[in-house]
Amino acid sequence: MSSRLITLLGYGVLACGGVTLGVAAHRGTSTIPTFDTLVRWALRTRSGRIGVFAAWAWMGLHFLG
């Protein structure tokens, strides 16, 4: 198995894990919060707001800018 395939499999597993978490979170009885709930919670303080918006701005600059 090549290094590239292992790296890509890692991303694939993490993506599947993220989707699984998202699906599990949307079940009413789950103790796992939805990503939306997580973001809302992070945005409740000013340092959280600045952190989330700085991360978002960085993503734009990193991938596009």
């Binding site: 103790t31 919670w41 989330v52 978002w56 701005a57």
Partner: peptide
């Protein structure tokens, strides 16, 4: 860059929403 700087500045200058957000379960 400009959009990002404006957004971060806005986050700094404005107050967080006043409605209480309950902390999600620690495990989650």
């Amino acid at each position: 860059g400009i959009v990002g700087v404006v957004a971060v500045g806005w986050a700094w200058l404005t107050h967080p929403h006043v409605d209480a957000v309950e902390r999600p379960p620690l495990r989650g």
